[in-house]
């Protein structure tokens, strides 16, 4: 076997998955390449993150146990409707507190579109919940009202927290209903 033949025998294994195009038009004159349409291919990308909730983890454990938790600053008593473990006002550590199940709609929207992950759930209602004596708000979903009936009258509506029986360890383990 001559050297040329042995080189031809060395080959990278080829597969037929991914983008397979058996024939691509190509001009004889390289000058024509400037007029070529772009090649556009599909490039999949999938990642599973190992996401730690870190210091916020007790919030999610709370949801799994039917408790909505916020935090309160020891020294200045500033109370967070969405937990923060250090106070934005005085910088001191905050303690966990249980929030009332009943709150009120501070503001809302009805999403008729959304990110790809949530498109199948449209229309859905987002609300920011407020509580008396709690200094910050909480983002959640409102169910049990007609999305098409959206109106400013919804602001101030009394709402009550409900918990999913099957926890997914996401903030949507809690949602709100009127009343």
């Amino acid at each position: 076997m001559n050297e040329q033949d042995s080189k031809r025998r060395i080959k990278l294994t080829e597969t037929e998955d991914g983008n397979v195009l058996f024939n691509v038009p190509f001009p004889k004159d390289l000058k024509d390449l400037k007029g070529m349409a772009p090649i556009v291919i599909k490039q999949p990308y999938h990642i599973d993150y190992i996401h730690s909730y870190g210091q916020d983890s007790p919030f999610f454990a709370g949801l799994a146990n039917g408790k909505l938790l916020g935090t309160r600053c020891g020294p200045c008593r500033y109370t967070y409707g969405t937990p923060r473990l250090h106070c934005m006002v005085c910088g001191e550590p905050c303690a966990w507190v249980e929030l009332p199940r009943e709150g009120a709609v501070h503001t809302f929207t009805v999403c008729h579109f959304g990110g790809e992950e949530f498109l199948g759930e449209t229309p859905f209602i987002l609300i920011l919940v407020e509580w008396p004596g709690v200094d910050t708000l909480f983002l959640s979903r409102l169910v049990g009202v007609e999305p098409e009936a959206a109106s400013l009258a919804w602001i101030g509506m009394k709402v009550c927290a409900q918990f999913k029986r099957l926890s997914k360890f996401k903030p949507t383990d809690v949602y709100f209903v009127p009343g």
Binding site: T109, G115, E121, L139
Partner: peptide, 12 residues
Amino acid sequence: SFDYPVGGFYSG
């Protein structure tokens, strides 16, 4: 952790 999973959508 708290906002995106509720229905992350900037227009919302």
